[in-house]
Structure formats: C-alpha cells, structure tokens
Design a binder for these strands. Structure first.
Length: 495
RNA sequence: GGCGCUAUCGUCUAGGGGACUAGGACGGGGCCCUCUCAAGGCCCAAACACGGGUUCGAAUCCCGUUAGCGCUACCA
C-alpha cells in the first residue's frame, strides 16, 4: 500500500498514530531539582493515564559538567518518588555518531552549512552590535562562501561549525498547554548544530534522540519555548514527524524569581532526608501547575493518575510554598495505612539510635500503635522521631520550661507524684477506663482539677509539656516503665 | 535592547458570557472541642493588574498598557 505510507509520512504526526511515548531528559549536573521532579511527574502521569510509555534519558553531552554522582542522584530521586520508567536508560552521550550523521545529513540536503567564524570573531561582532544598541544576529556570511572556498578551507584544516539555515516565514505549533505559539523566523538565528570539535549542540542532540526514541509528546519546562521553533525546523529538515509539544510553567521561589538554592532546599533528596513522604511531595508538586478542577487537593499517586488531564495544566508560573508542602505531608502522614508508614519511619528511628530494627520487629504491634499515636501531631517523619524518644529510651531529659511550668514547687510536685504513683500502682487493669477513673478521683480527692494532675505527670513521663493524651501514653509505655519514670521524677525533684 | 510567555486573595487554585455577594486550600486571626500539643469543627480578614472595546450582560472573548518571568552561547 504505497499510498497509505505516503499519506502517513506527509500528513500524520507520531502523536496521533501511536500510543504516546514521553520522556524525562535531565542533564546530570547536580541533583534532581524539584522543578525537574515535577516535569518528570507530569510526563509520568500522562504516560500512565493514557497507556503510553515513559522513558528516561540522561543528557550528558556536556562532559565538563556531567557527573556519575549526579546521574546516581537522579535515579535515587526518581526511585524514591516512585516514578518508574520503561525500558533502559538512554544516555545521550552514547548517540554521538547519530548526532554527527544527522548533522551531516542536513549539510548534504542543503538545510545547513559550514561556518568558519571563530568564537572570538563572533564575540567581537556581538559586542559591536551591543554598543550600537542593536540585536546581534549572525549575518550568514559563511553561507555566502563559494563551494570552492569552502572546500579549500576545509582542505586546509580550518575548523568549522555546522549551522542550520533558518528558512523564511514563521514557525508555529499548537502547544498542549499554551495553544498556538508563533515565532517569525527572522527572529531566529542560524543556530549552530555541530561544534567545531564534532560534538552536537543541545537542540540537535535532543531532536535526533527524540526522533530515534519515537517520542510523540515533548513535555518540558516553558524555558524551552524559544528552543521549540528551532527544533521544529530540525524535525522538518530531517523529514521526521512532529511530536506534540507541552510547555509547563516554571516553579519560582517566594520572591518570584526562579527557584534556586537561595530559597532553601531545592533538591528532591533534601526533602527525603527532611522526613517527607514521597506521596506528599508528588501531591504538592502536582498542584503546582495542575488542578483536577473543583476543590480536590489531597490525592494519592493512583488517584492523580485517575484524575490527570491536560485541561487542568496551568500556564502561569507557580511559587513554591514550603508551608503548604509541610501541611500536605501532615495530611499524607495521617492518611496512609500505618503499615505503609512504618518502613518510612523505621530507618529514621534506627538512625536516631532509639531502637534496632530487630527490636521494632519484635514489638511490631506496639510500634505501630505508637506511630499511630504520634503521627497525628507530626508534619514530618522527623517530628515523629523527635516525639518517640520517651517510649524507647531508658532515661529522659527534662525540658527546663516544662519544669518551670509544671513543677513549680518541687515539694508540692513531689507529693503529688507520690500520690499519683500510689494510685496508679493499684489500678487493677492497665486500660483506659480504670486509669482515667483512678487519676480523676485522685484529683477530686485533692480538690484540684484533673489537669493539675495530668501536667506534672506528663513531665514525669516524657520530660516535655507536649505529648499524646495522658492515658494513651500510660498504656503505650506500660505499667513498669510508667512507674519507673515517676520514681525517677521524684528522685529528680530531690525532696 | 529583541523575541516569547504570563496575569483571580500574601501563596496554590476553582471559574470557560448570566448560577459570582467570585468558591476551596495553605498561611494569618478568632471561637469550639480539650489534660498539653496536634488533629478536627465553626467563623473572620483577604483577589478578578489597569484602560479600552465586543455584548442586553464580562473574572470569563478581543485589543492595548503595565508588570513579572523566560530565552537571546561552538551551555543544557
């Protein structure tokens, strides 16, 4: 069927003929940035939602800045977030030969030309243009060289780059988030596609790889909008079908400027170590630039896949608000099954030397109950660990403000704690009703409010003014530890 | 400078010509619950950048202005 093939090649794009193929293409020059993570997330969501494929390509063509450590950090971040990719990782640097031969193809089919201008000459002309307050544009002087001269200079071993000859007219596309975007070609420079050392420039490498990988949807940050007309010209010159482009808004810091280290943590890994849940991070990132519509905010990853749609994509840059991220994490902390929370917290508990993994396995039910008790008043995993000390440690420290506030008069507190211990020692059943009855009647018999009994006891048990409810805590600590703590408190009071 | 993108509470957003006295969430303030702290519930303050059109009617459509951001390399 030659006719069918003909029509496919000339009128169809990849995007509407096959299942979607998307990619995330970070360059390994640092860590996985939250902006990059969000780009990855949207690509991933689209692929998962519409039955497509999500690929990972490491853009390591800049040898000077790329490191294996950064590549590792990207993998780690993606893995932590749970953004799994299909197929093997593509390393752009491995495709050097194809990049070169594509550049050669463009030279051969007349859409590109050799340029012998040196960087120094270019700089010079750029400065001149600037001093005349004019926009610098390459003047195409090397495109006017005769074939004989080009041949002579190449023969003489003169270095050259390959430039793409941008045709007249306009370049436009229907962006998935911005709708129609139009660039007059006269504003686009004849850009370099191959350096004098034979390595490709970004725009060529990207287009060459996206074609080779069969990418049908290019979804990336909108700082790439001005690269897009160049890339579209490259697709055309290489006679390849055009992908659909989607340009996502940027993420800014609190001051409205591009998010950077000045604004605090920007690496995904920072948030991992800070004690965030990947689900919360993803949820928060998704809301920065996308909305399912209506009032829906807190979502699990599967729910996001379910709800994801292109219409909800935002055009406006969003400001990264760490406060809301924390809140979101608190929501996820309370929302997920405690069995799923446990493996996230355990490493932190072990690192804090509160318990060994074996001990936690041994007392798993008790441990899960504790997590359940602590997570309500926590926004991060670190918050949980901070509160967990008194339930594991032999000795506790007394917070000075807690003493000042609730053990004002040592003699009085000591007497009260002795009475409390005596009351607790004879509680028949270490469960909530008998415990509550016992302590409340103690308060009553001494003519004080229940809080006056609870607060000094709280300090005795935890050393702090803040904790879960007093009865839940007594039960969680158990009779022996609770009584021991009270005795130690009495000793500490020294009366 | 040139080109491009964008514009609803401080922040994230709902909204796609009449349902808007503009809704929700974070943050802020207050109240309730209560043994502390959270969580939760209730309430309050807080926005359609500006100017022109189009229309009976505009947050919504069009055009300007302004502002912010991005790009403007033999970086990615």
């Amino acid at each position: 069927m030659p006719w069918a093939r003909f029509s496919f090649r000339t009128t169809m794009t990849n995007a509407n003929t096959s299942k979607p193929r998307l990619r995330f293409a970070p360059s390994p020059t640092g860590y996985l940035h939250v902006g990059g993570a969000r780009t990855a997330l949207f690509n991933w969501l689209y692929a998962r939602k519409f039955g497509g494929e999500f690929l990972l390509r490491i853009e390591d063509t800049d040898k000077a800045r790329s490191t294996d450590e950064s590549t590792r950090a990207i993998f780690d971040g993606m893995e932590w977030l749970g953004l799994n990719w299909d197929d093997g990782v593509v390393y752009q640097g491995a495709n050097l030969e194809r990049h070169r031969s594509d550049a050669k193809r463009l030279l051969d089919n007349g859409t590109a030309y050799r340029c012998f201008c040196t960087p120094a000459q270019l700089d010079e002309r750029r400065r001149e243009a600037e001093s005349r307050k004019e926009a610098f544009k390459y003047d195409r002087r090397c495109d006017r060289l005769s074939p004989e001269e080009v041949e002579r200079r190449v023969g003489a071993g003169e270095p050259y780059v390959i430039r793409f000859r941008v045709p007249d007219g306009t370049t436009e596309w229907e962006d998935m988030v911005h709708q129609r975007i139009v660039f007059p070609n006269k504003d686009i420079d004849d850009f370099v596609i191959l350096r004098s050392d034979g390595t490709p420039i970004y725009n060529l490498a990207v287009v060459s790889d996206d074609i080779a990988m069969g990418i049908t949807i290019v979804m990336r940050g909108d700082d790439h909008i001005s690269n897009t007309p160049k890339q579209i010209q490259l697709y055309r010159a290489l006679a390849a079908p055009l992908p659909t482009f989607a340009h996502l808004p940027m993420i800014h810091g609190i001051d409205g400027k591009k998010l950077s280290k000045r604004h605090g943590a920007t690496a995904v890994g920072d948030y991992q170590h800070y004690g965030l849940l990947p689900g919360a991070m993803l949820n928060f990132l998704a809301l920065l630039g996308w909305s399912p519509g209506g009032d829906r905010e807190v979502m699990t990853l599967p729910e996001m896949v379910e709800l994801f749609n292109v219409d909800g994509l935002q055009k406006k840059a969003a400001i990264f608000d760490p406060k809301k991220l924390e809140w979101m994490n608190g929501q996820h902390l309370s929302m997920i099954p405690v069995e799923d929370l446990e493996p996230r917290v355990t490493p932190a508990i072990v690192t804090a030397r509160l318990a060994t993994e074996e001990e936690l396995v041994e007392r798993r039910d008790w441990y899960l109950r504790l997590l359940d008790l602590l997570r309500v008043r926590s926004r991060t995993i670190d918050d949980i660990v901070r509160q967990a000390g008194p339930y594991f440690l032999e000795d506790i420290e007394y917070d000075p403000t807690a003493i000042a506030k609730n053990w004002k008069d040592p003699a009085e507190s000591s007497t009260l704690l002795r009475a409390t211990r005596d009351a607790l020692a004879i509680v028949p059943d270490w469960t909530i009703e008998p415990l509550e009855a016992s302590l409340r009647s103690l308060a009553e018999s001494r003519g004080i409010t229940a809080g006056k009994v609870f607060q000094p006891l709280r300090v005795a048990l935890t050393g702090m003014t803040v904790s879960p409810g007093i009865f839940e805590m007594l039960i969680q600590m158990g009779r022996d530890l609770s009584l021991k703590r009270i005795d130690k408190a009495i000793t500490a009071l020294g009366v």
